[in-house]
């Protein structure tokens, strides 16, 4: 069964019917936001049932759209947390990716600025590597991007996308060895992105990120995961009642090949590892459960079928 990431926007009235339908179809609700009278759902549903969902949503004035970034966690890497880079462009990019269904985390490097003096420390690298991909927001000058990229990419194992003011072709030319994605025309700026050209650039970022993540999904599909991250999320939410007391908007973050559970590692890692997904199959036998470098969360990376010999 191929699950398709979708976004549902509709009213609060009878939205529980949509929730039930998604669950009945064998889909998973990744995020649910109720904003005033509106409900926004990010969900994974079987590809063949999208039309059915649209048909049922129509009388409720609900809108179903494909959202390729649902079920992904993306690191938006800003070169610092100074006013030079925040809130624009870093927040603009992170916010736009969220509207497309991604869970974004902004990572401000301690010393990412400068051409010669740019640095990245071990903790920053480890945190970036916990994500599905990293979007680097670089500056306006090609010589600076060229000079500092080797430092910023060292030790990064997830796909990197580079945003910078030079055109895409120029970025491809100056970054050697190549990275996974390039978005030109998005350098350092200090105003809210609202003009048509600027929104088009943000759309380019979404398109490029989606493409990079599709490639990653295709690579994973060759040796499928032992269990779907969305299913694992469902199991954890139903088996660990304390997850309901987590104040974070998304207590369990779904990634392409794992989960981030926002519970203390020391207290809950063992309990999560012992959960039985099916008879005789514990989570610990299907996934690596490690402490996240982000606060004291739990990071779960699902092992591939080739490693476990199990497919749930």
């Amino acid at each position: 069964m191929i699950l398709e990431p979708v976004s549902y926007k509709g009213g609060v009235y009878r939205h529980d019917e949509i929730l039930d339908l998604i669950e009945d179809l064998g889909g998973y609700i990744i995020q649910k936001h109720i904003i005033a009278q509106d409900v926004i759902l990010q969900a994974l549903i079987p590809k063949t049932d999208i039309d059915l969902l649209r048909t049922i949503a129509r009388p409720l004035a609900g809108e179903v759209t494909t959202a390729p970034l649902v079920g992904t966690e993306i690191a938006v890497v800003s070169m610092s947390l100074e006013i030079h880079h925040l809130p624009h462009a870093s927040c603009d990019v992170a916010e736009y990716l969220r509207t497309e269904g991604a869970k974004t985390n902004m990572i401000g490097l301690a010393r990412g600025f400068g051409k010669r003096i740019a640095l990245m420390n071990e903790e920053e690298r480890a945190i970036i590597n916990e994500h599905d991909c990293a979007v680097y927001l670089l500056g306006n000058f090609e010589s600076c991007i060229q000079k500092k990229m080797p430092v910023l990419r060292r030790g990064i194992t997830v796909p990197i996308l580079v945003c910078g003011a030079p055109e895409r072709e120029k970025l491809m030319q100056i970054i050697d060895p190549p990275v996974d994605g390039y978005i030109g025309g998005v350098g350092r700026f200090m105003h809210r992105t609202k003009e048509a050209g600027e929104i088009a650039r943000l759309d380019d970022i979404v398109r490029e990120v989606a493409q990079v993540l599709d490639t990653k999904r295709a690579a994973i599909a060759k040796d499928p995961l032992s269990v779907s991250p969305a299913r694992l999320m469902d199991v954890i939410i139903s088996e660990i009642p304390d997850i309901r007391y987590v104040t974070s908007p998304i207590p369990v973050v779904v990634q392409i090949d794992g989960l981030r559970v926002k519970l203390p590692f020391d207290l809950y890692a063992g309990e999560i590892g012992d959960i039985r997904i099916e008879e005789g199959i514990r989570i610990a036998s299907l996934a690596a459960i490690t402490p996240s470098r982000m606060r004291n969360y739990i990071l779960i990376k699902i092992k591939p079928f080739s490693e476990t010999g199990i497919r749930v």
Binding site: M79, S80, H84, H85, F113, G114, R116, A118, G139, M190
Partner: peptide, 8 residues
């Protein structure tokens, strides 16, 4: 603010 951040 205008000048590149690394220019300390």
């Amino acid at each position: 603010i205008i000048c590149p951040e690394g220019f300390k």
